[in-house]
């Protein structure tokens, strides 16, 4: 029996008669980089929103580390060790880069309700925050206001912020979306460098990145799982080629 960190059973979400996610049984193995792929509108982001409770599921259940988290609040899920990123870069734009990471580090400090203390007590987090920034190559930007960073660096900052929580599991929603080649490479390297002792579930369009990073893939189509497996198996599946590439498999083989 393999060790499943995240599992869904018949996860379903309907929007007024339209079924965006249809009986999805997702199995994510501990320690894997697991990619969720599929054509536009397949329901990938909806699945993410369901997993992290930004949307309540219509029916079905979700298990994280064997615990039923179907009715648990978003913020509590983050505290249990499953932290997500967003399609649009999720940073605090007017805070400094260092402060962005510190906000995350503060979560485990237990002083976040202490309105009578000086914010100077947070300076003890600077060292750890700088280490994290260094690990994503942003140390020299620590004092910069975040909105002045380039898009790629904002995504890197987002990963550093997420790592600050030391989560068991990361959910990355299109980490390389809208990036140039160099940034894509940098983020891919970064994802590989942080995978140690962690599970990563990512939505990704860039198949090159997927083939390079992912141990397992789940292909969604119209809200349902088309197939699941390693890259070689999935990419050889003629249904995947047809659904994902929009061409018949035999044409592809002929070419």
């Amino acid at each position: 029996m393999t060790d499943l960190i995240l599992q869904t059973r018949d996860l379903t979400r309907e929007f007024k008669g339209f079924t965006a996610v249809d009986k999805v049984n997702l199995n994510v193995h501990r320690g894997d980089i697991h990619a969720l792929i599929g054509p536009n509108g397949a329901g990938k982001t909806t699945v993410f929103n369901l997993l992290t409770k930004y949307l309540p599921p219509t029916t079905g259940s979700i298990y994280f580390n064997g615990e039923d988290i179907t009715r648990v609040e978003s913020s509590a899920i983050a505290r249990k060790g499953m932290v997500r990123s967003f399609q649009i870069s999720a940073v605090f734009p007017k805070l400094s880069v260092l402060d962005n990471v510190r906000i995350a580090l503060q979560q485990q400090q237990g002083n976040s309700f202490h309105f009578w203390k000086s914010a100077r007590v947070l300076e003890q987090l600077n060292e750890r925050a700088e280490q994290l920034l260094d690990s994503v190559g942003l140390l020299e930007f620590a004092r910069v206001t975040t909105q002045d960073l380039s898009y790629g660096r904002k995504r890197a900052l987002e990963i550093a912020t997420t790592l600050a929580l030391d989560p068991d599991m990361l959910l990355l929603d299109e980490p390389t979306q809208g990036m140039g080649h160099e940034d894509v490479d940098r983020i891919a390297e970064l994802i590989l460098s942080i995978r140690h002792n962690r599970t990563i579930l990512m939505v990704e369009h860039n198949l090159q990145v997927v083939s390079r990073l992912a141990d397992r893939l789940t292909v969604l189509q119209r809200g349902a799982i088309l197939t699941e497996g390693d890259y070689a198996t999935v990419s050889a599946d003629p249904r995947v080629r047809e659904a994902y590439l929009g061409v018949a498999a035999d044409q592809e083989v002929a070419a």
Binding site: T52, Y54, S74, S75, A76, A78, R79, V83, R84, S85, F86, A90, V91, F92, P93, K94, L95, I103, A104, Q107, S112, T161, T162, L165
Partner: peptide, 15 residues
């Protein structure tokens, strides 16, 4: 401040 700047992100960080 974090909540005012980006509420969904503050939630995703466990607040």
């Amino acid at each position: 401040t974090a909540i005012r700047e980006n509420e969904p992100r503050a939630v995703s960080l466990g607040y």
